[in-house]
C-alpha cells in the first residue's frame, strides 16, 4: 500500500467518524422494517382473526359477540370439521409410510452413489416445487373417468373393460390424493434424509464394518435409530402439511366446482373446510374459530412430538 492511499483512507475515516446517527440506534433501525411489516401484516391479522372467532359475523354487517359458542359448536356438533381431520388421518395412513420408506431408501442409495447424486436429487425434487394448482389439475386430467390418460392406458393394455371412475368414489378419491402426496413428497423426504445421513459420523460406519456388521444390519442398527428424530420431524410436517392441504385436492375436482371436498366430502381437508365456511359461506366468525381450532390441533401434535423427542434424547 502506498502512503498516499493510506493517507486517503485515514482522511475518509475521519470524515465518517462524525456519525449523524448515534451508534446504538443502528440495530433498531435495521430491525424496524421487519418488525413494522411483520407486526402489521402477520401478527395483527392473526390477533384480529382470533377476536373474530368469538363473534358471529358475515364479514359486512354487524358483529355479534357470542363468546365461546363457535368453539362449542365445533367441538360438539360440527361433523364436517372432524371429518376433515379424519380424512387427513386416513390419507396420511395411506401415504406417510410409503414416503418415509421410499425417501429413506432413496437417500441411502443416493448416499452410496459417487456420480450423479445431484442429478437424481434434482429430478426427484421437481414434483415438490411444481405449482400445487397445476399438480391438482394435471392429476385431475390424468385420472379423469372418461378421458383420463390412466384409463386410456388401462384400456389400451386391455386391463379393464371400461374406465374406472377414480375421482367418483370416496375410497379411490382418497387414494388418488395419497398418490399425489407420495409423488410430490418422496423427493422432499429423500433430501431431508440425505442431509441426515450425511451428518452421521463416518467413524460409526467404519467401526461397524470392523466389527463385521453386514450392510443391512448396519442400516437397521445405526442408520435408522440415528435418523429417528428426523423421521419424527417428517411425520409431524407430513401431518401439518396434510391438514393444510388445499390447492391439490380442490383443483382435482375443478371440473365440478360445486363439489366441496370431493365425493361425500371424502378428501375435504381442514383448510378447505375453513375456506368454504369463511369465504364461500360468509361465516367469518365461525371460520376463524375453525382456523384456531386447527391451530390448536397442530400445536398439540407439535408439543407431543417434542416431548417424545426429548424423552428419547434423555434415554
Amino acid at each position: 500500500m502506498s502512503t498516499a492511499a493510506s493517507a486517503e483512507t485515514a482522511r475518509k475515516a475521519k470524515k465518517h467518524t462524525r456519525y449523524l446517527i448515534p451508534f446504538r440506534i443502528w440495530p433498531y433501525l435495521f430491525l424496524t422494517p421487519f418488525l413494522a411489516l411483520y407486526v402489521s401484516f402477520q401478527i395483527y391479522p392473526i390477533l384480529y382473526s382470533f377476536t373474530t372467532s368469538f363473534m358471529s359475523w358475515d364479514g359486512m354487517g354487524k358483529k355479534t359477540f357470542v363468546g365461546l359458542q363457535n368453539y362449542v359448536t365445533i367441538f360438539t356438533k360440527d361433523p364436517f370439521f372432524w371429518k376433515s381431520i379424519g380424512n387427513t388421518m386416513l390419507i396420511m395412513l395411506m401415504s406417510t409410510p410409503i414416503v418415509i420408506v421410499f425417501g429413506l431408501l432413496l437417500a441411502t442409495f443416493l448416499f452410496q452413489l459417487t456420480k450423479g447424486r445431484s442429478f437424481f436429487q434434482t429430478i426427484n425434487f421437481l414434483p415438490y416445487i411444481t405449482t400445487p394448482v397445476a399438480i391438482g389439475l394435471l392429476f385431475g386430467i390424468l385420472f379423469d373417468w372418461s378421458s383420463g390418460s390412466v384409463n386410456a392406458l388401462l384400456l389400451k393394455l386391455g386391463m379393464v373393460q371400461e374406465g374406472i371412475n377414480f375421482l367418483g368414489e370416496p375410497l379411490s378419491a382418497r387414494i388418488i390424493v395419497a398418490v399425489i402426496i407420495i409423488w410430490k413428497y418422496t423427493g422432499y423426504h429423500m433430501a431431508i434424509y440425505l442431509a441426515g445421513i450425511s451428518a452421521i459420523s463416518p467413524d460409526l460406519y467404519e467401526a461397524a464394518k470392523v466389527d463385521g456388521s453386514s450392510p443391512a444390519h448396519t442400516f437397521l442398527k445405526i442408520t435408522i435409530p440415528l435418523l429417528a428424530p428426523i423421521t419424527m420431524f417428517l411425520i409431524l410436517t407430513d401431518l401439518i402439511g396434510g391438514l393444510q392441504m388445499f390447492d391439490e385436492p380442490r383443483l382435482l375436482f375443478s371440473a365440478n366446482a360445486a363439489a366441496v371436498g370431493g365425493p361425500e366430502r371424502s378428501v375435504l381437508t381442514a383448510i378447505w373446510y375453513y375456506f368454504d365456511v369463511t369465504f364461500a359461506g360468509f361465516r367469518f366468525g365461525y371460520g376463524s374459530a375453525v382456523a384456531f381450532t386447527l391451530f390448536l390441533i397442530i400445536f398439540v401434535f407439535t408439543v407431543i412430538s417434542y416431548l417424545f423427542l426429548g424423552r428419547r434424547e434423555r434415554e
Binding site: 402477520q42 391479522p45 392473526i46 384480529y48 382473526s49 383448510i271 376463524s288 382456523a291 391451530f295 397442530i298
Partner: peptide, 12 residues
C-alpha cells in the same frame, strides 16, 4: 401457520 390470520388480513 399464516392462513389462520386470513380473515384479519382481508379486513385490514
Amino acid at each position: 401457520p399464516g392462513q389462520i390470520g386470513l380473515v384479519g388480513f382481508l379486513i385490514e
